[in-house]
Amino acid sequence: MTSPARILSNPVEAALALRAQGRLEEALELLSGARRFSSDQDILRGDIQLELGRTEEAAGSYFAVIESEPDNVYAYSNLALCLHRMERWEAAADASEKALELDPHRDQVRIARGDCLLRLERFEEALACFDLCWSDAAKEQTMFGKAVALQLLRRYDDAENLYQRLLALNPRNEEALTNLIAMSLEVFDLARVWRYSYQLLELSSQSQTALQGLVLVALERREFNTAARYFARLVQQHPECLIPRSEVEDAGSITYRLSRETVERLNRPGRTALPRR
């Protein structure tokens, strides 16, 4: 039980005790009602708000800490996290930059900043940001971030090289394979699209990207029966793919579109090969 004397003497300690018991709402209420003793109080309030999913309120708490302690790297890091969750990429990138000025060794903050820069389409800056990561703990994420930045900069050879190194480290990296499929499609290398799609399907038998890639390659190679087989699997696993999508929805990604006629033929029982044009 938290005694009133304890609450009065040290609300942070009392709130920590409540938090340890899983009584987050009560801990938050206690902190919000108490007179402000120190920035620890705001930090704890921010942490609890973050745990409760109240991201905007948490951002406010961390901001209050920064106002009184402009060098508090923890507050800056978590403010960046809140802004990232709120998808305020520009502000999140700024907050993480400030955190890194105070402590350049925080690779997780740097990776978060790289993520923001990718979303802001500042690919060169993102690449430079990932380059500054130093720890082995962040190695895989750093390599992945660099590969994505290189891919978006259309430096495909460098990007593929990095994805291959990632796959050597972790052959189950599905996102690397997904991006390799997209990249191979950009250069319309059907052999690679097929290879990476097949590899991805072995890892994840329901992968939409893998099945789409295999349908696409088979269609382009006019292997209609193969295309129909993969298309049937695709529709079974992802029936939503038959819902027409607007170009806006597909903006930002390479998209392959099938005509109504092709789809009908793929769905037709007793399928026959499409005539060559």
């Binding site: 994505v148 997209a182 499609l185 789409q212 990604s253 998209t255 109504r260």
Partner: peptide, 12 residues
Amino acid sequence: EYSVSFPFPVTW
């Protein structure tokens, strides 16, 4: 008229 689209987004 195209009815089905296969998007291949780059994700991270």
